[in-house]
């Protein structure tokens, strides 16, 4: 860690660019030794006021510890198994209650988009957490371009199904394709982004390349990876973990220390990277994004709408 880091500032604000790039190369180099994969391309991006001041996890943590059951249920399996995935060409079907439905090439989706760095906390439903410097853009930008019809109330997402390259899909561990959904106001919220990279580089395959959702106030499984379909609908969409176990995983799945998962407490979390004696920290309401998103749920009983 650079000693110049001051916790109340953005880390890249205070570190000279040369040092910062150098550090990134060191990390990327270290990661390349342990995690197979070609060197990723650098992305152009601007910084965002929505970034947290917390120190991001090392790239090796973020690339080496993934829940991506399409590539195996072990945390280290995706970093190995995902490297076979073809992410170019990539197209996303956008359909349902939209003005301009169609199959969009990823380049079309990204054309004219200003990528931002959003350093977000990520809280997994399994009670561990990380801080990830995502590169992406608000989902609302895309939805505005596509034109959401007034009848639409929800957005449904689907992950690619390609068992030849996604070996986890050869087993019915989950009901493929992986599906997720958001209420339209959640989807249009400025914190909700489609991410195409992290640490200034193209998205590693095990992290959901080439394009994934990031909803920082919800448990990580809501942030669906490797998206091939976005549908606007007036029905609450089916979501994979809710289909798997409706008692344990609700549609909303907002991070909430006061509503326990039936099989484990959500009151606290283990920050990845803390080592064997890192201990736990308290989990924050809406993962610390309460001031931004609490208004979305005014009048809702979050113990029922969990």
């Amino acid at each position: 860690m650079p000693t110049k880091f001051i916790p109340d500032l953005n880390w890249s604000d205070v570190t000279p660019k040369a040092v910062f790039l150098n550090r990134r190369q060191l990390i990327a180099g270290a990661a390349a030794l342990s995690v197979a994969g070609p060197a990723a391309a650098q992305l152009d991006y601007v910084k965002s006021d929505y970034s947290t001041d917390e120190e991001p996890n090392d790239l090796s943590d973020i690339r080496g510890y993934n829940n991506f059951y399409e590539f195996g249920t072990g945390k280290e399996e995706p970093s190995v198994n995902a490297q076979k995935l073809t992410v170019d060409p990539w197209s996303v079907k956008i359909d349902g209650m939209v003005d301009k439905p169609g199959d969009y090439d990823l380049a079309d989706i990204l054309s004219g988009v200003t990528l931002e760095e959003r350093i977000y906390r990520l809280r997994c439903v399994e009670a561990w957490s990380m801080v990830v410097p995502w590169i992406g853009f608000p989902l609302a930008d895309l939805l505005d371009r596509i034109g959401v019809q007034s009848s639409a109330k929800y957005v449904a997402f689907e992950t690619l199904v390609r068992p030849e390259e996604m070996i986890g899909q050869r087993y019915p561990v989950l009901d493929w394709p992986y599906r997720e959904g958001l209420r339209l106001d959640e989807a249009m919220h400025t914190l909700t982004i489609l991410a195409t990279g992290l640490y200034g580089e193209e998205m590693p395959k095990q992290n959901g390349a080439p394009i994934r959702l990031v909803v920082p106030w919800k448990y990580g499984f809501k942030s669906i990876k490797s998206i091939v379909r976005i549908s606007l609908t007036d029905q609450m969409p089916e979501t994979t973990w809710n289909m798997q176990n409706p008692r344990e995983y609700g549609f909303y799945s907002n991070v909430n220390p006061n509503v326990d998962h039936p099989r484990w407490s959500q009151a606290s979390e283990r920050r990845i990277g803390g080592g064997l004696f890192g201990g736990r920290q308290d989990t924050l309401m809406f993962n610390g994004y309460e001031e931004h998103v609490a208004g979305l749920y005014a009048g809702q009983d979050l113990t029922k709408d969990y």
Binding site: S60, Y65, W128, R270, L276
Partner: peptide
Amino acid sequence: QAASGALGVDPIKAL
């Protein structure tokens, strides 16, 4: 192994 990082980035869970 857990203390030295050989069990990955979440050594508590691994142990």
